[in-house]
Design a protein around this nucleic acid. Sequence first.
RNA 1: GUGGGCGUAGCUCAGCUGGUAGAGCUCCGGAUUGUGGCUCCGGUGGUCGUGGGUUCAAGUCCCAUCGCUCACCCCA
Length: 426
Amino acid sequence: MTSDSNRIQSIRGFADILPSATPVWRQVETTLQATLAAYGYDEIRLPALEHTELFARSIGEVTDIVEKEMYSFEDRNGDSLSLRPEGTAGCVRAGIQHGLLHSKEQRLWYAGPMFRHERPQKGRYRQFHQIGAEVFGLQGPDIDAEMILMTGRMLRALGLGDVRLEINSLGSAEARRAYREELVSHFRAHWEALDADAQRRLETNPMRVLDSKNPQLQAVIESAPSLMDRLDEASRAHFEGLTRILDAAGQPYTVNPRLVRGLDYYGRTVFEWVSDALGAQGTVCAGGRYDRLVEQIGGNDTPAIGFATGIERLVSLVTERFGVPEVAGPDAYLVVGDEAAMGVAHRLSERVRDQSPGARIRVHSGGGSFKSQFKRADRCGARYAVVLGESERASGQYTVKDLRGDEPQRSLDENELIEFLSAGQH
RNA sequence: GUGGGCGUAGCUCAGCUGGUAGAGCUCCGGAUUGUGGCUCCGGUGGUCGUGGGUUCAAGUCCCAUCGCUCACCCCA
C-alpha cells in the first residue's frame, strides 16, 4: 500500500467525475443540448485559454473574478494567459474575430469547463462546467423573454420545474452610474449603521450592500433608493416589454430589485433561476443582457444577451431528486474455458459486433474458474452468460444462461448464437 | 483570504477515564472437480492523514502541518 504522503492527488477543487456519475452528467448535457437545438441555437466550441486581457476588459478589472480568481500565467513568450473563468468573453471574441456578428443575428451555445480559483464548497468548484448560450444582434425584450422561457424549459425537462425565476433590470450604464452615486451617498449618511461587511462593499461594489443578509441593516436598505424607480426611459420600456411577454406566456416570476451581477458587462435585463435545495449556492442558471460588451472589446455596436448554467449544480439536484440510474450491464458475458475457447469467443463476439453495432458483449479476461467467471458475469450486470468450454467446442453447441430471468438454459450452434446475441433486446 | 466540522482497511464506520487495531460491505478462495445470485466457512487488505511533544505506554492527550467538507466573501 502506497502511503498517502507520496501519492499524487487531484488539485483542490478539480473533481473527478466517476463512472457512477457520468450517466447523470450525460443525461443532463443531452437534455440541455436538445432544448437548445429545439430553439434553433447552433453550437460553437471555444478554447479554454485566452489572453488575460480579454477577461480583464470584458468582466471588469475590479471584479473579484479578475482580481483574485483567475488562473493566470505567463506563456513562454511572455504573454499573460488565463484559463477562462466564464464563457461569454471568449464567445464574443470569437464572434468578432470570425465576422459572425457582422449585421446579422446569431444564436450560439457552448459547453465546457470553466476555472475560478475560489475556495470550494457545495456546488462550487475550481474547475466547473457550464452550458451557456449567447444571442447577438437582437435588441428587443422578445429575445430576453424567449431565453428565459427556454431556460425554464430546460429545467423542467430535467424534472427541476420547482425552481423560481427572479428578474431585474440594471438599466443603462448612465442610469446605473447615477444610481450608484445616489446609493453611496445614502449609505454614507448612515455609515455607522452599516456593519463592516457592508462598509467594505460600499467601497467595492455599492449595489451589493443591498444584498446584505444582516437583519439589522434591513431598515437602512429598505429606505435606500431603488434602481427600478430610476431606470432610464428606454430601459423601463424594455423591462415592461419583457414582463408583458412573460405574463402573456404564463411564466411566473418575481422582480428582485436587489438582483445584481458580479460582472461589469451586464445592463438592462438580468435573470436567475434559483433552487432552495443547494445550500448556499442556489443559483442554477443565470443570465442577462450585455449590449455594450461587443463594442467594448473591439466589435461593432451589437446588442447581446446570454445565460449560463452550472452543470455540477444541475447534476446535484437531479441526483438528489431521482437518484442515480443503474448502469446497464452488457447484453452477454462470454465465459471461456481455456485458451482455445478464447479464440472462439473473440471470433464470435467480433461477428456479433459486425452484425449489430449496438450489441454489448463482454469477453472474460484474466482466467479463473467457471465459478469465478460466472460471478463476474453476474456482478457486471450482464443479461446472459455464454459458456465456451471444451464440451461446447467439441459439440459446436454453446450454452446460454439467463442471469436475470427465468428463461431455461439453451444450447445454440455458432450461427444461432450470433443471431441470438445480435437481436439486442431479448 | 477567514471561520466551524471531520481525517482509523477499497467503501461506511466503531474503538469508553491512554494498555497488543475491530465490525459490516467489497474483493479472493472453499463448501459445489464446468454454472452467478442466497447461506455457511476461511483468507487478503492498516506505518490509525503527516511531523513533533507528553508518557513506562498514544488511534486516544497537547502542538504544528496537510487534506476533505460546510459556511463567509464571491459566484454557475
